[in-house]
Simulated assay, not measured.
Amino acid sequence: MQSLIDHARTFHKRVRGDREQAATLREGASPQAMFITCSDAQVIPSLITGARPGELFELRTAGNVIPPYRLGRLTAEAATIEYAVNILGVEDLIVCGHTHCGAVQGRVRSWTLRSAPTTRWWLLQTHRWREARVTGDEEPGRAHLIAQLDKLRRYPRVARRLAGGRLRLHGWFYEVHTGVVSNYQPETGAFTPL
Rank of each mutant, 00 (worst) to 15 (best):
R130V: 11
V134Q: 12
P156Y: 08
R168Q: 15
N64E: 10
R120N: 08
L124R: 14
G50V: 11
L71P: 02
H144N: 11
Q125E: 15
G165P: 06
G97R: 04
C96F: 03
R168A: 15
Y69M: 05
A51S: 15
I48H: 03
T178K: 06
L74M: 11
A132T: 14
C101L: 05
V95H: 03
Q148E: 12
W121V: 14
R168W: 00
G106N: 08
I48F: 05
L145T: 10
L123C: 03
R109W: 08
Y83G: 02
L113F: 06
K151Q: 14
P140T: 06
R120T: 02
V108F: 04
V108Y: 03
N64P: 04
C96G: 09
R52E: 15
A132M: 12
H177C: 13
A147Q: 13
A103H: 02
L124A: 14
T126L: 08
T126N: 14
I81D: 00
V95W: 01
Y174W: 11
N64V: 05
N86W: 02
E58W: 07
Y155G: 01
Y69C: 02
Y155R: 08
E138D: 15
G89R: 10
V85A: 01
A116K: 08
P45M: 06
L152N: 00
A163Y: 01
H98W: 10
T119H: 10
V108A: 13
R130P: 01
L169C: 07
I87N: 15
